[in-house]
């Protein structure tokens, strides 16, 4: 009798453990196996995409902290409006869609650091001091790129809205002849305020996320 119960319990234990292990492995396969990572703009101070996906625990605290509400969780619902799809490992990671809301680098907020980088509990967003020179040096969300086919200033109508929107006006974005935007790669941090401001649709100036 007692051997019978022991065997039953042993079988139960084996069954339960194997279900758990199989479930975890399947979940892991599903997370890492399917879907390429989509290029997207990460909040300021983020690690490289690969390291970011490994470090971020998807807690959403950077989104809470953002005074501009530009950081959103990368869910299917959010991504749908921007015609992209999160990769399997990117689900719920913080993402910025500059067209919808761009990073204003905590301008006009009384703080020593960029608030999202201060909120991050894991270091996926590196704590960044809020000073112009440090931001230019350390923040790299992407790089603005002008589509000369679309840009009004390249097509005979001077516009220059993106230049006015740039937080480093005269450095990252300068106005050339007929307000043509000229991007200085060494200054552009990829905040996306130019993309946000662009009056052309689809946007003539866009932030290309860092690799």
């Amino acid at each position: 009798m007692s051997t019978h119960i022991k065997r039953r319990r042993f079988l139960k234990q084996v069954a339960a453990s194997s279900i758990a292990v199989a479930g975890a492995t399947a979940a892991g396969k599903w997370m890492g196996g399917s879907g390429e990572a989509t290029a997207c703009v990460r909040p300021p101070g983020s690690l490289s995409e690969e390291e970011f996906l490994a470090t971020c625990i998807r807690c959403g605290r950077c989104g809470d902290a953002c005074p501009n509400q530009c950081i959103q969780p990368f869910t299917e619902e959010v991504a749908l409006t921007h015609a992209v799809e999160p990769g399997a490992a990117q689900r719920n990671t913080p993402v910025i869609f500059p067209r919808q809301q761009a990073c204003m680098l905590c301008n006009d907020v009384e703080s020593d650091h960029l608030l999202c980088t201060e909120a991050c509990p894991t270091g996926a967003l590196q704590k960044t001091v809020k000073q112009v020179d440090i931001i230019i040096e350390e923040v790299d969300m992407g790089l603005a790129e002008v589509d000369e086919q679309l840009c009004y200033s390249y097509n005979g109508a001077s516009c220059g809205i993106c230049v006015r929107a740039c937080p480093f006006e005269g450095k990252a974005l300068t106005a050339g002849m007929w307000e043509k935007p000229i991007i200085d790669e060494s200054y552009c941090v990829g905040c996306g305020l130019c993309e946000r401001a662009c009056v052309r649709f689809p946007q003539a100036i866009r932030v290309v996320p860092k690799a």
């Binding site: 758990a20 975890a24 979940a27 892991g28 890492g32 490994a54 971020c56 625990i57 490992a89």
Partner: peptide, 15 residues
């Protein structure tokens, strides 16, 4: 298993 899978996949999957 979850921690090992996180390490292998470089994605924190238990969350």
């Amino acid at each position: 298993v979850g921690l090992c899978a996180s390490a292998v996949l470089s994605v924190p999957i238990l969350g």
